[in-house]
Simulated scan of single mutants.
Amino acid sequence: MQKQHLAIVLKNLTGGGIEKRTLQLIRAFQAQDRPCQITLVLAHAVGECLAEVPEGIKIIDLGLPYESRLTDLFWRLLPALTQILRKLQPDVILSRLPCFNCLTVLAHRLGGGRSRLVLSEHTLPFYRLLAIEKGYTTTQTLPGLLPKIMLPLMQWTYPQADAIITVSQGIASELQQSLNLSEQQLTLIYNPVVDDNLMLQAEATVEHPWFQNADIPVFLAVGRLAPQKDYPTLLKAFAEVVKTYPAHLIILGEGELRSKLERLVQSLQLGNVVELLGFVTHPYAYMVRAQALILSSVWETFGTVLVEAMACGCPVIATDCNYGPREILANGQYGTLVPVGDTQALAAAMVEAIAHQSQSPPDRQRLQTYAQTFSVNAAVDRYAEILGL
């Protein structure tokens, strides 16, 4: 059987969820011996996950400046992507560009348009993200040209794709309403998260001294140090927790808010019980040992870290934000949901997790069994079907 050529378009290979899930998908295709040749097309070939690209995968670097602003990247990406797609002429294109999938549609058309084109949406539309993060109540008041043209551009380009994959029902509903898409144009495939590799990495040792004392619980948060994750609310909630019980908090992740969060840790007098350990490629061994994983986000589009934690048998506490946590946790059946930005509710949930530990310890096996709903094997067959591989 002749191999089909699949081109996967990504921004880069930093250690975010989209990048990790893409590599898991590639490894799964290889493990199943799918008859396809895979090329990774990157806007900029940088990131912690570059070293994890499986053998046999070709990488094409479009060479765009890594620190480009979103608006600069938007205008530079189109001609570069058009040129490479015209040259490659792959059988199938899978575009996993947060905010910029519409550019892949344009590049596909300008490059000849003979490939099957599948868009994979992992986040809110660009104009919605800007409105949320900048505090605007309506996207119409956003400054600049790009936010104003993005919605009509998406409404024109997205229907031209052969298929659109979303990672949560919330994102599917958002796209359906804002882009006037039908249910038939959207396919829900949960992120491929749980595989043998994850479970193997969860068995690694953790040398951190806080895990050597089982009498003092350690809470864990994993994610970028960015406004979306709302770590200030988590830190303020944890300051309330340690007034009642001795506890530790470890935050794994890196980002632009590190200095601000370090100052907040000191001002709350948490320097001896909170550590920001930076980015960790595989945080699963931490999850195995944690009292609970805390997701304090203002918004999510899926919440992969919740699935990773449950796969490791780690209880989870999450904000009931749009979108993902309520859907993943089955309306709270598999974890605790608290209101967004509610310091007291988050603190109370963490205190309850400590108080109930000795009386009714969490059923870690139940969490691990449920997490298989989000296994790589469950996702890869659906992806292969949509991609036509």
Rank of each mutant, 00 (worst) to 15 (best):
D61M: 01
P143V: 00
A292V: 03
V298P: 10
A355L: 09
Q266Y: 04
F100K: 06
S358H: 09
S178V: 10
V53P: 01
S259C: 05
R382Q: 15
S182Y: 09
K11W: 07
K20W: 00
T301S: 15
N191M: 01
A353C: 11
A384M: 09
Y284E: 10
E262L: 13
A214R: 14
E240T: 11
P227L: 00
I165T: 09
S120H: 14
G170P: 00
S259A: 15
I149Y: 00
A45V: 06
Q201D: 07
A80S: 15
N377S: 14
A292M: 08
C102V: 14
L188G: 03
V194H: 03
P54R: 11
E67Q: 14
G278E: 01
A292N: 05
A349V: 04
D195P: 07
E262Y: 07
V305P: 08
Q228A: 06
A349H: 06
P159R: 03
L94F: 00
V206M: 03
L119V: 13
R96L: 10
S68I: 03
Q83M: 08
L94N: 01
M310C: 07
M199E: 15
K243M: 07
L13T: 03
M310T: 08
T336Y: 08
L81T: 06
A51D: 10
M199R: 15
P98T: 11
L387V: 06
L257D: 13
W210C: 09
Q185G: 02
E133N: 11
G335M: 12
Q177M: 05
A371L: 07
S358R: 11
I189E: 04
D195T: 08
E300M: 04
T14S: 12
D162N: 14
I60E: 12
W75E: 15
K3H: 14
T138Q: 13
D162P: 03
L268D: 09
K148Y: 01
L23S: 01
L117E: 07
R69Q: 12
W75P: 03
M199I: 14
K134S: 12
L62M: 01
L85C: 01
V167D: 06
G388M: 05
R128I: 11
T373L: 12
I18D: 04
I84Q: 15
M287N: 08
K3V: 05
G17E: 04
A214V: 10
Q184N: 14
E48M: 08
R96C: 14
I165K: 10
L295M: 13
F126T: 10
T281N: 13
D320R: 10
Y286C: 04
T166C: 15
Y136K: 03
I354V: 15
T301W: 02
E240W: 06
A43N: 02
T233A: 02
R382V: 09
I250C: 11
R86I: 06
N101M: 05
E327S: 01
I38L: 04
L277S: 07
T138L: 00
I328N: 03
L50P: 00
E203H: 05
L268H: 09
P232V: 01
P65Y: 03
G324Y: 05
A290W: 13
V265D: 07
H5K: 11
Q169V: 10
R114D: 07
G56V: 05
T137M: 07
S178K: 10
G113T: 09
A7I: 03
E203N: 12
Q368R: 15
Q333E: 15
Q4S: 13
P90T: 04
L146D: 02
G170D: 03
Q4G: 14
G335D: 08
A204R: 14
L70I: 14
D33C: 09
